[in-house]
């Protein structure tokens, strides 16, 4: 985003906001935000754009943020929504969960533990497998495995009921593990 646009959009409206307080509230979570955006957009350039956009949005709605609330969840919700809008705009052709994977029972995919024999997953394999997963699976996996958020916090950020978090996470993991279990050459879906 260019500086002029930034100033034009932010400059007038943020006069009354305590910038230092905003900085202290949001900056501690900038790495979490970047990490989430990086996994959701799958490239550095777009990730930084998303974080910057979320940062600006957060600044503009900072007066609605009440002290004492969970700042990380609040900021990550904004980041996640920015990424989701971006994804809908530019990546809508990709696999999506709109047809409701959540409705399927999560149990079936894990009926046979032998299906996944891989024990030493490496980071490159994980990245490749993750990149094939739908947006909804990636976000829930990052929020849980890397940000270590509770189901309740995830439910708040992703805006789904607690039960859906549980079943979606379960399915997402199984999809990931199954992909990791396949020989490198046949990773296609």
């Amino acid at each position: 985003m260019s500086e002029e646009i930034w100033n034009k959009r932010a400059g007038r409206e943020v006069r009354k906001i305590d910038h230092e307080l905003f900085e202290r509230t949001v900056l501690p979570y900038i790495n979490s935000a970047h990490n989430l955006a990086r996994w959701l957009t799958r490239n550095e350039h777009d990730a930084e754009d998303m974080v910057q956009e979320a940062f600006l949005r957060a600044l503009r709605s900072f007066d609605t943020f009440t002290a004492g609330r969970d700042a990380r969840a609040w900021f990550l919700t904004i980041v996640r929504n920015s990424c989701r809008t971006w994804h809908r705009q530019y990546r809508s052709h990709e696999t999506s969960m709109e047809w409701d994977m959540d409705a399927q029972p999560a149990v079936t995919a894990w009926s046979d533990p032998e299906a996944v024999l891989i024990k030493n997953a490496n980071s490159q394999l994980i990245r490749r497998a993750m990149e094939q997963l739908p947006f909804e699976y990636r976000e829930i996996l990052i929020l849980r495995e890397l940000e270590e958020l509770s189901y309740k916090e995830i439910a708040q950020i992703v805006e789904v009921p607690l039960g859906t978090v549980m079943s979606r996470l379960s399915r997402a993991r199984k999809e990931l593990y199954i992909r990791l279990g396949q020989p490198t050459g046949e990773m296609g879906v």
Partner: peptide
Amino acid sequence: DQYQQMHDSVRVHMEYFPA
């Protein structure tokens, strides 16, 4: 056991991208 092992392995090896 296997599920837990897989889970731990993925968590350890999943990259983190700080700003």
